[in-house]
Computed example of a mutant assay.
Amino acid sequence: MTVLDTTREIFRRDQVWPFLAPEHSMVDVSHNMILYVEGLSVSFDGFKALNDLNLYVNDGELRCLIGANGAGKTTLMDVITGKTECDSGSVYFGQTINLLQRSEPEIAQLGIGRKFQKPSVFEAHTVFDNLELSLKADKGIWYTLRVKLNSADIDRIDSILDLIGLKEQRFMLAGALSHGQKQWLEIGMLLASDPRLLLIDEPVAGMTAQETERTAELLTSLAGDRTVIVVEHDMEFVRSIARTVTVLHQGSVLAEGTMDEVQNNRDVIEVYLGEESADARGEEIAAARGERA
Results as ranks from 00 to 15, higher is better:
218 L>H: 08
262 V>S: 07
286 A>Y: 07
138 D>S: 15
14 D>K: 08
267 D>T: 13
268 V>K: 05
180 G>N: 01
73 K>N: 00
189 M>E: 00
183 Q>D: 00
183 Q>Y: 02
7 T>S: 12
208 T>I: 04
257 G>L: 09
72 G>D: 02
55 L>F: 00
10 I>G: 05
269 I>H: 04
6 T>H: 13
215 T>V: 00
61 E>S: 05
270 E>F: 01
282 G>E: 04
277 S>W: 06
21 A>F: 01
237 F>S: 05
269 I>C: 05
40 L>S: 03
68 A>F: 00
168 E>F: 12
254 L>R: 13
116 F>I: 15
283 E>G: 10
191 L>K: 10
16 V>T: 06
2 T>C: 13
249 H>E: 14
47 F>Y: 15
75 T>H: 06
284 E>M: 12
224 G>P: 01
45 D>I: 10
128 F>I: 13
79 V>T: 14
171 F>E: 15
274 G>P: 07
113 G>E: 12
274 G>A: 02
256 E>W: 00
189 M>S: 00
176 A>I: 10
269 I>E: 07
266 R>V: 10
38 E>A: 11
21 A>G: 01
282 G>D: 04
22 P>W: 01
158 D>I: 04
40 L>R: 00
217 E>F: 12
196 R>I: 14
203 P>W: 01
101 Q>H: 08
102 R>Q: 13
9 E>M: 05
39 G>D: 12
66 I>A: 03
203 P>C: 07
42 V>K: 10
67 G>D: 00
130 N>F: 05
54 N>W: 13
92 Y>V: 09
6 T>F: 11
101 Q>L: 10
26 M>Q: 12
268 V>E: 02
188 G>F: 02
209 A>D: 14
123 E>M: 11
171 F>G: 12
123 E>A: 10
223 A>W: 03
191 L>A: 08
46 G>Y: 14
143 Y>K: 11
5 D>T: 14
132 E>Y: 15
44 F>C: 03
64 C>A: 08
169 Q>V: 11
253 V>D: 01
94 G>M: 09
156 R>M: 12
177 L>P: 13
128 F>P: 11
241 I>Y: 04
199 L>R: 07
165 G>A: 13
248 L>D: 03
164 I>R: 07
96 T>Y: 09
140 G>P: 05
4 L>E: 13
216 A>M: 03
232 E>G: 01
194 D>V: 02
94 G>Y: 02
77 M>G: 01
42 V>D: 02
110 L>K: 12
220 T>P: 05
286 A>C: 06
49 A>S: 09
14 D>N: 09
211 E>A: 09
133 L>I: 11
26 M>E: 14
